[in-house]
C-alpha cells in the first residue's frame, strides 16, 4: 500500500488521512438493468494482480472521493484523480 497519496486538491498526504473504499471499476447500472447486472455490481469483483483502480476517500482532508490507479505488487502509484472529474471526463 502506498505511504503517500498525492491528492489533486490537497497535495502529498500520508495514507492515514485516507480511507480505502474498494474497487473503483464497477459502474452502477441503470434503473432498468436486469438483476444480474445489479448482482455483479454489488457482489462480483475481479482480483487482479498489478495495475488496479481503487476508490480512496480523503477523509481527513478535502473529503473527496479519489480514483487511485496503482500497482498492488510494486505499490507504485500511477495517478490520482478526483472521482467526479473522472466520471465527467469519461461521459
Amino acid at each position: 500500500m502506498a505511504s503517500l497519496i498525492s491528492c489533486p486538491h490537497c497535495g502529498v498526504r500520508p495514507k492515514e488521512e485516507f480511507t480505502i473504499r474498494g474497487d473503483a471499476t464497477p459502474v452502477r447500472p441503470g434503473p432498468d438493468a436486469p438483476e444480474e447486472a445489479w448482482f455483479a455490481y454489488v457482489y462480483l469483483r475481479e482480483n487482479p494482480k498489478g495495475r488496479i483502480r481503487e476508490s480512496w476517500h480523503h477523509t481527513s482532508g478535502c473529503r473527496r472521493f479519489l480514483i487511485v490507479e496503482r500497482d498492488n505488487v510494486t505499490h507504485e502509484v500511477y495517478s490520482v484523480v478526483d472521482a467526479a472529474q473522472a466520471k465527467e471526463a469519461a461521459e
Binding site: 480511507t19 473504499r21 473503483a24 452502477r28 476508490s55 476517500h57 477523509t59 473529503r63 473527496r64 472521493f65 478526483d82 472521482a83 467526479a84 466520471k87 465527467e88
Partner: peptide, 15 residues
C-alpha cells in the same frame, strides 16, 4: 452516512 452521501454525490451522480 456523511461518507456515503459524498460517495453518492461525487461518484454516482456528480451532475
Amino acid at each position: 452516512v456523511m461518507t456515503h452521501l459524498e460517495h453518492c454525490a461525487q461518484t454516482l451522480w456528480p451532475n
